[in-house]
Design a protein around this nucleic acid. Structure first.
Lengths: 221, 221, 221, 221
DNA sequence: GATGAATGAGGATTCATTCAT
DNA sequence: AATGAATGAATCCTCATTCAT
C-alpha cells in the first residue's frame, strides 16, 4: 500500500528527470512563451507580470525566480524566441539540384510562409520597432543574428546565379535589401492589421518574384 | 513690385491678436510638438504628461485645457502632425514637361527626401506600428489619408507611362506597393537606429530607381 | 449718430441704478442661487466653482469677486437662502379667529406645504446633515434661526389651547418636538428619494394631525 | 464539567490558520472599520484612501487588494456595518409574557438604546442622507433591510394589541411611521451635534412612549 | 521551489484659486 | 468689473518588486 500512495512514476517521457525536476526545467520556457503572448497582445509596458504568471500557470513570485525583472524577461523573450527563417547550409543542400531561378522562388516562398505561419517573427519585428529605442542591444543583436543572414543568403543565391551566367548584379550595394523589401512591406501591413488592405498572398508573391527576375535576369540577347 | 514681394499681410488672425490671445492660439501647436518629441523619445506609455508640459513650457494642467487626456493627445499628434508627401495635382503640373521616367525618379527623390528631412513621417510610422493595436482608428485613417494617395499617385505615373508606350504593367495587383517597398525598408532601418547598417542614401535611391525601371520599362526590341 | 451708438438706456425697471450698476448689484444673488442649485444637485465637494459660474451666467473669476472662496460661498448659501416657514406674528393675526384645533391643523398644513413646495428647506437640511461636521457654526445658527422658532410657535399654540381649556400638556419637555417629528420623517424620506416609500401626503398629514390631537386633546369627561 | 465550560473549539476557521492566513482573513474587517471611521470624520469625498489605510495599519495598495475602489469600499462599509436593531422572532419570544403596552415600551427602549450605543446606525444614516444621491442602490437596499423591518415589527405589536383589545388602529396608513418618528428626530439631532439642544434621553423616551399610548390605547369607557 | 500578501513609487487627472489683461 | 488662461496641490489607482511563510 505504501508504494501505491505515490503517483506511479511517469514513464520518463522526454527526459530522465523526476517529474518535479522536469517541471522545474520547463518553467523558464513556459514563462517565456506566456510572456511572449502577453507582450504580443498588449505591448511591453501594458503587459503585467501577473498576467504573464497566470498564463504560465504560476504566480508572480515564480517569475522572479527565473528572471531578474520585467526588462530582462522581455529581452529574453526576444532573444530566445526568435527563430531563423533558414538554415542556409541545409537549404542549399536540400535544393542543390534546383536552378538559381527556382532557388529564388523557393527562397521567397519560404520567407513568406515563415512570416505567415510564424507569429513570432512578425511580432518580434513589432517589438523591435516599438521598443527598440529602449533596448538597442537586442535590436542590433537581432539584426546580426536574423536579418543579416537572410540578406547574405540571398546574396549567395544571386552570386551563384551570376556565376552560372543567369543573373546579373548591376548594382554595387543594397541590391538584396531592395529586392527583398516587398516582404517587409507585407509584414508591416500584417502588423498594422490592415486586413482590408492586405494583398492576397499568392498573387503578391508572384508579383514580387516577377519583379526580382525582371531586375536581375541576365538578358540573353 | 517690391511691395508685392512681401507675403500679403496675414489676416488679423495671429499678428493682430493681443499677446494673451496670441499665446493661447499657439498653445495647441506648442503642446503637440512637445508631445510628439516626448512620444518619439519614450514611446506612448513611458511618456509622462508632465514631461510634455515641461517641454512645451507650461504645466500639467494646461495640457488638459487643450486635450481631453493622454490618449486624445496622442491621436491628435498623429493626426495633426502627419504631412502628405505630395500634393499630386501640384506635382504633376509642376513636372508636366518631364518624361515618365523622370517622373518616377523625381517621385522617388521626393519620397526619400521627405523621409529624411521629415522626422514626423518616420516617427509616426513607429507610433502606428508600436501602438496601432490600441488605436486602430488612427491606423486606418492614416493609411487612407497618407499611404493610399502615395500608392495611387505612383499608379498614375505608371499608367501615364503605359499610355505613352514606355512602361509596361505586367501584373494586375500590388505592383506599385512592391515597387515602392524599398522606401519602407529604408524607413524601418532608420527607425531601428541601425545606423551602422544604414545605406548611403544616394546609392540606395539609385539602385531602387534602377530596380523600378528594369521592372517596368517596356522592352523596345 | 453718436448717441445712437450706445444701446438705448433701459427703463429703470427695478431700481434707480444704471443697468451696469444694477447688474452688479444682482450678481451676488444670482451666484447664490446658482450655487445653491449646484450644491443641491451634487453636494458640496462635488460641486465645481466653474459650474456655479456657468449657471450664474458669469465666469469663475467673478465668483471670487463676491465670495472669498468655496467654503464661504457655501456658508452664504445656507445662511441667505434659508427661509422661515412662518412669520409667527403674522400667522397668529391672520388666523386669530380660528380655534386652537384649527390652528394646529393650519400649522401642519403650512409646514408640509412649505416642505413640499420649498426645495430650499429640504435641501438645506441635507446640507446640514451632510456637511454639518465641517460647518458647525452654520448648523447651530440655522437651528436657532429656523428650527427653534418653529418649535416655539407650536408651543405657543399648545399653551393657547391649554389656556382655553382644550389642550392638555402632560409632559414637561420635548412635547412639541415629538409631536412635530413626523414632518421631519417625511422630509428625510423625500431626501432619500424613497419615492416608492413616500406616503401620499394628504393621508399622511391627516394621520399626523389625528395623532397630535389624540395626544393633547383634553378629555372632557 | 470543567471541560464543557469552555466554548467548543471554534471550527478551524480562525484559530487554526497560520498567522499569515489569519491576518489576511481579518484584513477586510480591519479596513471596513477604519474606512467607517474616516468616512464618519470626513465624509465620503474628503476621505483619502491613504488615511483609511493608515488607520487600518496597512498601506494604500492593500486596500485595493480587498476592495475594487473607493466607491465599492464605501458601499461595503454601509452594507456590512449596518446592524439590524431587532431580530423580531427572538424579540417576541423573549418577551412573549409581556403585555402589549410593555412590548411597546421595550421596543422603544431598545430602539433608543441601539441608537445611543451603536455609532454605526447613526452615522450610516448620515451617509445615506449625505451621499444617497450618488448611491441610490444602497439607499433602497438599506431601507428594505433595516428600516422596513423596524416598521413592520412595530405594526405587528400594534396588531397584537388590537387583537387583544387594548390598542386601536384608527388610521389606515403610515401610523407606525408616524408613531416612531420621534426616534428619527432624536437621531438627527444627535447627528447635527446639537449637543446643546439634545434632550435628556430618559425624559424624551418617556414622553415619546406616552405619546404613543395616548394615540393608540383603546378607550375603555 | 513556490506562493501571494504587502508595499510604495509613480503617473493621470481634477479643480480651487490666482492674476495679467 | 469681468475674464479665463494658467497653475500646481491633491488624490485615486496601478503594478513591479519583495519577502515571510
Amino acid at each position: 500500500m505504501v508504494g501505491i500512495k505515490h503517483a506511479p512514476r511517469p514513464a520518463a517521457a522526454e527526459t530522465e528527470l523526476r517529474p518535479r525536476a522536469r517541471r522545474k526545467a520547463q518553467r523558464p520556457q513556459q514563462i517565456l512563451h506566456a510572456a511572449f503572448e502577453e507582450f504580443v497582445e498588449r505591448g511591453y509596458t501594458a503587459t503585467r507580470i501577473e498576467d504573464v504568471a497566470a498564463r504560465a500557470g504560476v504566480t508572480k513570485g515564480t517569475i522572479y525566480l527565473y528572471f531578474q525583472n520585467k526588462e530582462e524577461l522581455f529581452q529574453d523573450v526576444v532573444r530566445k524566441l526568435s527563430q531563423p527563417v533558414f538554415d542556409e547550409k541545409q537549404f542549399l543542400e536540400q535544393h542543390h539540384h534546383r536552378s538559381c531561378e527556382e532557388l529564388v522562388r523557393i527562397y521567397l516562398d519560404t520567407l513568406y510562409e515563415h512570416m505567415t505561419v510564424n507569429l513570432y517573427s512578425r511580432e518580434i519585428l513589432r517589438f523591435l520597432i516599438a521598443e527598440g529605442r529602449n533596448f538597442p542591444v537586442i535590436v542590433s543583436a537581432h539584426f546580426d543574428e536574423f536579418v543579416k543572414p537572410l540578406l547574405t543568403m540571398f546574396d549567395h543565391i544571386l552570386q551563384k546565379g551570376v556565376h552560372e551566367g543567369v543573373f546579373e548584379i548591376w548594382a554595387e550595394d543594397h541590391l538584396s535589401q531592395i529586392l527583398i523589401s516587398p516582404a517587409l512591406t507585407y509584414a508591416i501591413d500584417t502588423l498594422l492589421g490592415a486586413d482590408t488592405n492586405l494583398p492576397e498572398l499568392k498573387v503578391y508573391v508572384n508579383t514580387h518574384y516577377e519583379m526580382v527576375m525582371r531586375t536581375i535576369r541576365k538578358s540573353t540577347i
